[in-house]
């Protein structure tokens, strides 16, 4: 059996791939939002002075770093509805189960990213804000967070890309995301190479777009007035004046 370009191209433009890719990205986006929200709370808990908050936050991180995401998805989709009747209703779809499951697992990792970003900000920053008379919330929102976000952006970008790929785990709870779409096609036609190749192309496109988005957002966090549009050039001599 040769690689059939026609089948490959057919699959590339197949709407079910597009919707699969869309589902993968949507799961990744929503679970990242959820993970950032929970992760921020956990990070605040871990840096707090309260023993209880520290304990709860530490427990969360310890637990969800240890449990495989796949197991969490299976528990949320299969076990929880047996325990809680609300989850047996129609609104509880594989999509919702997937982004919640991936979100709460990812939160343990986002918490560490956010915590180290918060800790990386010089203590003098909060001190200066407090000296101006800013309330604790204002100090966090106007002084510490904008700086911590810049530190957290690159690792968060990595996590985001990871989540796009982790969304394929949701195939076990029958979410028709990108990889499942390919797999379904394979199960019918046994054209492994063409269907998987189409999936590869989609993943490459998604991750390339995300990388562009990331570098665009990171540029927003360059704090200089002039060089905002100026791209670093590999042709530019570096370290001039160091040698003498």
């Amino acid at each position: 059996m040769e690689f059939d370009v026609n089948i490959f191209v057919q699959q590339l433009v197949n709407p079910s791939y597009v919707s699969g890719a869309f589902l993968s990205v949507a799961v990744a986006v929503l679970s990242l939002v959820l993970a950032t929200a929970i992760g921020f709370a956990v990070a605040l808990g871990r840096t707090s002075h309260s023993r209880i908050a520290q304990g709860v936050a530490g427990l969360y991180t310890w637990f969800f770093r240890a449990i495989p995401a796949l197991l969490v998805l299976l528990i949320i989709w299969n076990a929880l509805p047996q325990l809680f009747p609300v989850l047996r209703q129609d609104w509880f779809s594989p999509f919702i189960a997937a982004f919640i499951g991936l979100g709460i697992v990812e939160a343990a990792f986002m918490a560490e990213i956010i915590r180290s970003a918060l800790l990386s900000i010089d203590e003098g920053q909060a001190l200066a804000g407090r000296a101006l008379g800013m309330s604790p919330v204002k100090v966090m929102l106007k002084v510490v967070l904008p700086q911590a976000i810049r530190t957290a952006l690159p690792p968060t970008g990595n996590e985001f890309i990871g989540l796009v790929k982790f969304s394929s785990l949701a195939s076990v709870i029958s979410l028709q995301e990108l990889l499942t779409t390919a797999q379904v096609g394979v199960n019918i036609t046994f054209r492994y190479a063409e269907y998987y190749a189409a999936a590869i192309v989609y993943y490459l496109i998604i991750v390339s777009l995300l990388t562009l988005l990331q570098s665009y957002v990171e540029k927003k966090f360059v704090w200089t007035s002039r060089s905002k549009s100026k791209k670093p050039s590999i042709l530019e001599p570096v370290g001039q004046g160091v040698q003498s």
Partner: peptide, 11 residues
């Protein structure tokens, strides 16, 4: 208050 290391907000 004015600090030794300025503590301006870099962003």
């Amino acid at each position: 208050m004015v600090f030794q290391k300025f503590n301006l907000f870099p962003h």
